[in-house]
Design a protein around this nucleic acid. Sequence first.
DNA 1: TTGTAGGCGTTATCAC
DNA 2: GTGATAACGCCTACAA
Lengths: 355, 355
Amino acid sequence: MATILDVARRAQVSKTTVSRFLNGVGPINVGTAERIRQAILALNYSPSFLARGMRTSRTRTIGMIIPDYSNPFYSELLRGIEEYARVRGYLIHLANTDANAFTEYDCINEMVKRQVDGIVLCSYNRIQRDIDFLVELTAKMPVVLMDPLVKNEPISYVVTDGNTGSAEAVSYLVSTGRRRIGYITGPNRLLATHDRFEGYKKGLADSGIPFDGSIVYEADFSLRSGYQAAKWFFQKGLSVDALMAATDLMAVGAIKFFNGQGVDIPGRVAVVGFDNISLCEIIEPSLTTIAQPISDLGRRAAAIIIDAIDEKRIEKRQIVMESRLIIRRSTDAAKSNTPTFDDEAGSVLPVERSL
Amino acid sequence: MATILDVARRAQVSKTTVSRFLNGVGPINVGTAERIRQAILALNYSPSFLARGMRTSRTRTIGMIIPDYSNPFYSELLRGIEEYARVRGYLIHLANTDANAFTEYDCINEMVKRQVDGIVLCSYNRIQRDIDFLVELTAKMPVVLMDPLVKNEPISYVVTDGNTGSAEAVSYLVSTGRRRIGYITGPNRLLATHDRFEGYKKGLADSGIPFDGSIVYEADFSLRSGYQAAKWFFQKGLSVDALMAATDLMAVGAIKFFNGQGVDIPGRVAVVGFDNISLCEIIEPSLTTIAQPISDLGRRAAAIIIDAIDEKRIEKRQIVMESRLIIRRSTDAAKSNTPTFDDEAGSVLPVERSL
DNA sequence: TTGTAGGCGTTATCAC
DNA sequence: GTGATAACGCCTACAA
């Protein structure tokens, strides 16, 4: 590989000048610039990321840590991040934690050792020691969470408002005549879980329906756990006429169970998910859901990190995106099961708050 | 961050000795070693990847290039690669090409510039100029393809034998009384496509059924294209009693269409996919498929690269894994739609051939 | 068994 | 406008 020195020699200048040319700093004689350009072309030169990184301690790399490859939500998020990052000259380091707290810790450390410029963390891990660790980390490099962890901590995040959407979904269900609305919640330690659950309760309150903890099941976001949740409701006599789940994956699991038992959806029970992953249009009945602008979340997370680096200000930003109810067949028998093959749902206005 | 010099000073030795200690080369006095160990611990030192990379031109990074985030096949493959790589101290650089040849080329170049130690390429791109480019690349660093591109080129690959499995599936369909078996093929330029298609033809021949090109539809591996394929068959009068697709995603698309039209599966038409992604158990009817050991493919690809680096021999390896027919409801009404929540299908014996 | 010294390819700080 | 020169943190002959 050609080095900057090779270019310098060929253009008959010093490496300093070539470096200046490359980084666009300081004035350069137009003729000189042209000679350098030629030399670079002729030698097919491209600067060494390693050497650059060593000098600048910037690697043009973003670390992304996710808990579960099998959830298409993360694939979609990844897409948003990776596409945006690449356009701006960044590459992604990807690692999976299997929702394990120790692995998560290891992954973060590995990324830090690799000197990534920033980290997008989809954490499943929520004890105070880890929060402290993250706050400390945030002081050293941009970190963006895809779950707001704990309120009032000075950490950037990009999330979807799960409260409003969930409340809206409840109202919608009530408007279609449902009264006993069960809920499949996620891991209790996640704030996103709380948000959505609170929205569900708020929706009930808005409709004057008393909250009933006996029709709430705690699952773990996985398809399997959704399946088991549905089984639990079923074995209890299926006293609900609607079921909301904190994620699509769990809702799909529930539908699988109900389908297997011949429970009519939406006739006997309506089902509502959260996320709007592509699975919603594949499962039958197609799944009504509270849509997150998933790849947009990713793009914004990447933007926060890259802006922070490029503009050298590590300022915390907390972005809350709006959700949107998408009605499909699992709550409305008049809807079709046919996929639309649409691209991502239209734009939503984010609510942002700077720290 | 502490440097090797800090450690050296604290342990009262030279950087050389610390370096030796770190890399386990040359003899070191046991007492000295202990002092170094302490110093490293006390300073929370860890070597700079950048500096190391510069000296050794190794980054402990593997580049992975995939064509499509929305296909769970790649998520699963990624999982295999990433898990295996991490255990051996490697991290993944991930990039998506959207099945675009130019993007693919750019991605490869970006990875090379980043000095990844090897590349796992899921290519969608097959013109000779690119093959030459890859052969050339292979001389410089380990490259593993997940599609054998062109036969007889000295490039490593890890693939599943699509021929045998497809033939087997045809025999199976015939054994259940099917005679008119249509086929949804993939992009013509991919060898994996050919492989599976040839297997299909072989299966027909084995059963004494004449091949009929008029019931073959060329699609592009996407769900949408499978949907359209089914529509095409349907509009032609649905003269087939079975339909095989070169990927699960296309088969799922086809099922979606048939379900929408009220076409009975498997009664009116049986459907068979290829891959065994988790979607097979989510779609209804659940999808009979020719299973690839997906995450195993990933692990082996990663192993080839890491072995090549660690053992410093860039030897080409071509691994062909066996597939396995999994019968579900889309071909057999007696089967259930219930997901098994099994982990990956049992082990299969790979056939390997070294160059 | 350990230390000295040089260089990997950049960028940054000075001078000129 | 341009060029020496000194780091950045590590590995590796070569010496001792």
